[in-house]
Design a protein around this nucleic acid. Structure first.
Lengths: 213, 213
DNA sequence: TTTGTATTTGATAATTATTACCATGTCAAT
DNA sequence: ATTGACATGGTAATAATTATCAAATACAAA
């Protein structure tokens, strides 16, 4: 009467090996296509089942990001991910010095926390080239007019800062010409998205926060 | 010939108001049920459409966590989430001092990053009470018998230590009750993952090392 | 105010991703 | 050898979301 004990079947073993070998983050059916080359008679259901089982056993990781399809990761070392909002591609990301940052949330609301995940998102190199690019919508009625990338970057930088910033602080994070930064700050001030509590210091307004959401 | 300009229809307006009003993170059809009280003739498709549109416009946030169903959040201020691995409930979480931590990934692999998301997961208060609890599986063949989080943490701590540790040394690194630590050490000893060369001193075995590898 | 037209709606069909089911098969321990 | 837990392949069913389309609506411009 052994319970919750899994057997290393041939199929499961092949799936695990493939997951350990591959350097990307396949979905169940992407993996199914690869596995079929080795085991042509394997069932898609078996692949789904085993990915689930292997991840609850802690032998692989399940990534529930980037839309509707689950992805899996054979790399168990602590690392994080970026994904593309357009094509849903997922890549690893290097957090540098922050890599080992420990998050211990103060108020977990009674949760027994077993893990933490940090994800970045944006546009992958390929999707940046695509003509469509900015699909963001605005609505004049509700005051959300479209902001350009520079304006958005600046607002985001301000949003992450506790204190009011000078344009140098912004330049450090945003990589734009100082001239452009101050020009954009003026525009943003006119729109009511940033305020200047002191000369040459800027901070984001509530309207600004909702504009970058 | 206006492009990417959305109109504030009555339905969209009601949906946005409801999202701003509610303090939780509804799915499309949860929101649909709420909206129907105000607009009994609204279509589920309209709710889906508008949640998508409002989130690309930045008026609400889309949360792609916790399994298959998308959730949405009317709160635009910077904050993060915890979700339950069992019941998929989602709550806000307080990161305390870390709240304003700036993530600027060193190597973004060419991505234009527009955001970052930090998620915690575990068991919510209700699901902790449920009998099932640990659904984790092990496999003797591949040496992965189930270790709980505490055991893993302890093993990892021991793995990093050159000399045999007392439970105080472990407590310093692991943040657990001394009682629990010694209880887990006993279990781990029985499993052959730790050894005790001297009374009250513990060190990891080769088997223990491969168990966390 | 009226009008032209892009956008939106409700209803429903279709699609996508995943899970459930089941008859059969395998393995390990009495 | 028998038993019972665990697995498999094949397929049906479900869940969540997206697509389609005729009719309605919002809103800028005349």
């Amino acid at each position: 009467m052994i319970k919750n004990q899994m057997r290393m079947t041939h199929q499961r073993d092949i799936i695990l090996r493939e997951m350990r070998k591959c350097k990307d983050h396949p979905t169940a059916d992407e993996l199914y296509e690869r596995i079929k080359k080795t085991l042509p008679r394997i069932s898609l259901a078996t692949v789904y089942r085993n990915l689930e089982i292997l991840s609850t056993a802690g032998l692989i990781k399940k990534l529930e990001i980037s839309g509707r399809r689950k992805r899996f990761d054979g790399e168990l070392r602590r690392h994080h991910h970026v994904y593309c909002l357009l094509c849903h591609r997922v890549d690893n990301i290097d957090l540098g010095q922050e890599e080992n940052f420990q998050f211990l949330p103060a108020a977990a609301g009674g949760y027994r926390i077993t893990g933490c995940r940090i994800e970045f998102f944006g546009l992958c190199p390929d999707c940046q080239k695509k003509p469509q690019g900015d699909k963001k919508m605005g609505c004049k009625k509700c005051g959300t007019e479209t902001l350009n990338d520079q304006q958005q970057q600046i607002l985001k930088t301000l949003a992450q800062s506790a204190a009011a910033c000078g344009s140098k602080d912004i330049a450090a994070a945003v990589k734009l010409e100082p001239k452009q930064i101050s020009s954009q700050l003026t525009t943003l001030k006119k729109k009511g998205y940033v305020a200047s509590p002191v000369r040459c210091k800027y901070e984001i307004t509530e309207a600004g926060k909702s504009a970058i959401a």
